[in-house]
């Protein structure tokens, strides 16, 4: 077996997994807290990428250092997406918080379609090139093309986000409030937690990481259109379900499992079946563990 090829696929899978994880976090956190599949989440990712593209285009003319441009674009994209995330919650989900869950789900699908078409009309339906802004690292010259510098940035950023998020949820006050709200929303309110703030904050974090994923993957792949949010959103959703929706470590694990499955599947079998592997794996896992790899099974009270 060609070891170089294996490592290439492995790292490719990890990169994919990282991006899925950044998006899946938003799905799983929002589900954990308000039991809603936020179908507009993929669009947040897409809007993050588009915002970055626009900023890069505007700053490209100033002749600034590309790395600096990339950082500025990234920050603005992430903040814009967070704004979109919170606004979506206010407009489309908050009024339906006590409505049947299906109503909120339909509202989410509507929001998703609206945002896709809004970007389609405001921008274009064509694929747009996304410039390469991350320079090739010199020390990678000997790596024989197994890993690119963008991949390293993606893996490192994802790892950092995971660590920060874990600390935030485990140790800070807002993290505790989030856990309490997800376990018993009414009781959380009765011990003095303003749940609207907590829910808004959850959307901010979810949008934040999704946009980060959007910016990173587009600078890796190098092109973008209004539809990228849909397929990435579905894949990340699959990853979240695979890991056990509502569980944060589950979403991360599910994402890497999915990323690696796709990468090895396409690399060793056939690239035509890329999406088939993802969904086949989902079906397999769910038949064995219906609530996902790390999902907690609902115990029936006897």
């Amino acid at each position: 077996m060609d070891l170089d090829y294996f490592f290439q696929l492995f790292l490719g899978g990890m990169t994919r997994g990282s991006i899925y994880a950044l998006i899946a976090l938003g799905y799983t956190m929002v589900y954990g807290i308000i039991k809603l599949i936020n179908f507009a989440h993929g669009e947040i990712y897409m809007i993050g990428a588009f915002t970055a593209l626009i900023i890069v285009g505007a700053l490209g003319m100033t002749g600034l250092n590309p790395v600096l441009i990339f950082l500025i674009a990234g920050v603005i994209a992430v903040l814009t997406s967070a704004g979109y995330g919170v606004t979506i919650e206010r407009i489309a989900y908050k009024p339906l918080r006590n409505a049947p869950r299906l109503s909120a789900l339909i509202s989410a699908i509507g929001m998703s379609l609206f945002l896709q078409n809004y970007v389609l009309l405001a921008q274009t339906s064509n694929f747009l090139p996304f410039p390469t802004l991350i320079p090739e690292f010199k020390f990678l010259a000997n790596a024989g093309g197994i890993i690119s510098s963008t991949q390293i940035i993606i893996l490192a950023t994802t790892a950092l986000v995971m660590v920060v998020l874990t600390l935030l949820i485990k140790f800070t006050r807002i993290g505790k409030a989030m856990r309490a709200t997800s376990q018993d929303r009414q009781m959380a309110q009765l011990v003095g937690i303003g749940i609207n703030k907590v829910i808004a904050f959850t959307f901010v974090i979810g949008s934040f990481t999704a946009a980060l994923g959007g910016v990173l993957i587009c600078s890796h792949i190098g092109q973008i259109n209004f539809y990228i949010g849909f397929i990435a959103g579905i894949k990340a959703f699959v990853a979240a379900v695979l890991g056990g929706i509502g569980s944060i470590p589950g979403a991360v694990l599910g994402s890497f499992v999915l990323g690696l499955t796709e990468s090895f599947g396409t690399g060793y079998i056939s690239s035509d079946y890329e999406d088939v592997f993802a969904f086949l794996f989902l079906v397999l896992i769910l038949t064995i563990r219906p609530s996902g790899i790390l999902g907690r099974e609902k115990k029936a009270k006897v």
Partner: peptide, 16 residues
């Protein structure tokens, strides 16, 4: 809050 520690349950109450 069943999945939080005893101390965390009380801390949540203090936060307000």
């Amino acid at each position: 809050f069943q999945n939080m520690t005893v101390l965390e349950n009380v801390m949540i109450g203090r936060h307000c």
